[in-house]
Amino acid sequence: MGEKILMKGSEAIAEAAVRAGCKLFFGYPITPQNEVPEYMSKRLFEVGGQFVQAESEVAASNMCYGAAAVGHRVMTSSSSPGVTLKQEGLSYCAGSELPVVVVNVMRGGPGLGGIQPAQSDYFQATRPGHGDFRYIVIAPATIQEAVDLMMDAFDLADRYRNPVMVLADGLIGQMMEPVVFREDPPKEYDKSWACTGCAGREKNIVNSLYLDPKDLEDHNFHLFRKYDEVEKNEIRVEEYLMEDAEVALAAYGTTARICKTAIGLLRAQGFKVGLVRPITLWPFPYRTFRKVADRVRFVLDVEMSMGQMIQDVRLGVVERCPVHFYGRVGGMVPAPVEIVQQVQRLLAE
């Protein structure tokens, strides 16, 4: 293991990508993730890579498509409104089965919204652009986890030939924490499908166009068999103090950390409260919630949104227990004490 260093989330995410063998970055400036392209604009040229400040997020995602099509590890990053624009290129990546990693440092919306932290892109991440497809979505809660998941993201993208979205909020992007980078070398994957010039073989085509309905249906079936594999193999979830819990909080990312502080306060008062923290938002840990639902009085879903992940929580709980919601939006970050009060109020009902 390497040296422990204090790093800002955005920069740590960028450095993790470089260490995962990503030498290509295409992006467009948007707050609050500018430290990612700024870091890459310097770092990638040091490692023999390339950085392009694209003319738009649309162009950036299509540059990623091109670089992935020739078999290289590539990433982009953006924040909510920019990710909407990137949905175009990323749908093509999913349709053409190209591995791309995209970082979304979420800010509040809709529209131009604000520049402060939010979790209002859960839908945009887990119910992505046009067509039947999925991103693998991973949501770190600490900078160390962001670094580890970022390196995993490139492996997941390559293994399943699919876009992976690292969904962070503005807090993860801006805060600094100590991190240690794994030093295992990037894994190699078969990329014989890539467009590298057809010397000694038939030509390769990278394409998402299937004009024959039967072909397109088969292609969709193929993609979803792959997604079944992802659901089977890649669900990640943290259960925190759930062994004896009578109440389960449900939260991801920074909100989950705030919940942990709230749980500390509640447990000090004798309330047995735990947390279920999805680390992969897709595939979603439905089974964990189903199991938990039989043991707790209720689930309180906490988000920095008007309630997006709660839809998946409810799908997991399947009415085995009540699911309540508490959310702050627009860049307002819930305080631990607010969550404490919600739990106390619900327990008193």
């Binding site: 649309v58 299509n62 670089a67 467009c195 030509k203 085509i205 394409n207 166009l209």
Partner: peptide, 22 residues
């Protein structure tokens, strides 16, 4: 020869990705 299908209008961006990588 090897071919990539781009989305509408983005071929120069895709080509940029190709040439920056290779």
């Amino acid at each position: 020869c090897d071919m990539i299908e781009a989305s509408h209008g983005r071929a120069p961006a895709v080509a940029t990705g190709v040439k920056r990588a290779r």
